[in-house]
Simulated assay, not measured.
Amino acid sequence: MRWTLPNILTVARLLAAPLVPIMFLYFARPWADWYAMILFIVASITDYLDGYLARAWKLESLFGAAMDPIADKAMVLIALLVVNGYAGVTPWILLPSALIIYREVFVAGLRETLGDKARALKVTNLAKWKTTVQMVAIAILFSTGIFEHSFYERISGMDDTMILDVLEGRVADEAGLIYFQTAWTWSTWIGVGLLWIAGVLTVITGWDYFRKAMPFLKEESSDA
Rank of each mutant, 00 (worst) to 15 (best):
E60V: 10
L15Q: 05
V123W: 10
G109F: 10
R103V: 02
A87G: 01
F180P: 01
G206D: 02
A87Q: 01
D173N: 15
K117A: 15
R13Q: 01
L164N: 09
M214W: 11
K122A: 06
G51L: 01
P6A: 07
S187K: 09
I101K: 03
M214P: 01
D33R: 00
L62Y: 04
A224H: 15
F106M: 07
M135T: 12
V82E: 00
M135Y: 07
E219K: 14
V136L: 02
A79G: 04
D72L: 14
V82N: 00
I140Y: 14
V123N: 08
L126A: 12
K218S: 07
A74P: 05
F63Q: 07
S187C: 13
N125Y: 11
V133R: 12
G115S: 14
W57Y: 13
F63K: 08
L164P: 01
L53R: 03
L95W: 14
S143I: 02
D50A: 10
I78E: 07
F151S: 03
L110P: 01
M1R: 07
L39W: 13
F24K: 01
L49C: 11
E174A: 15
F24W: 06
V192R: 13
A32M: 03
R170K: 09
L164Q: 15
M67E: 00
G88Q: 00
R103T: 03
F180L: 10
V192P: 04
F40Y: 04
L19S: 15
M135R: 14
M37L: 06
Y26D: 11
L19W: 15
L39C: 02
L5M: 14
S221M: 07
Q134I: 10
V20C: 13
N7I: 08
I22K: 15
T182L: 11
F180T: 02
L94I: 03
A139L: 11
T131C: 00
D159Y: 02
A16C: 08
D208N: 12
F216K: 12
A198W: 01
T182R: 13
F27R: 14
G191I: 02
V192Y: 11
D50H: 12
I8L: 08
V107D: 04
L126N: 07
T4M: 06
I101P: 03
E174K: 10
Y152A: 00
V76D: 01
K212T: 08
G64V: 07
G206P: 02
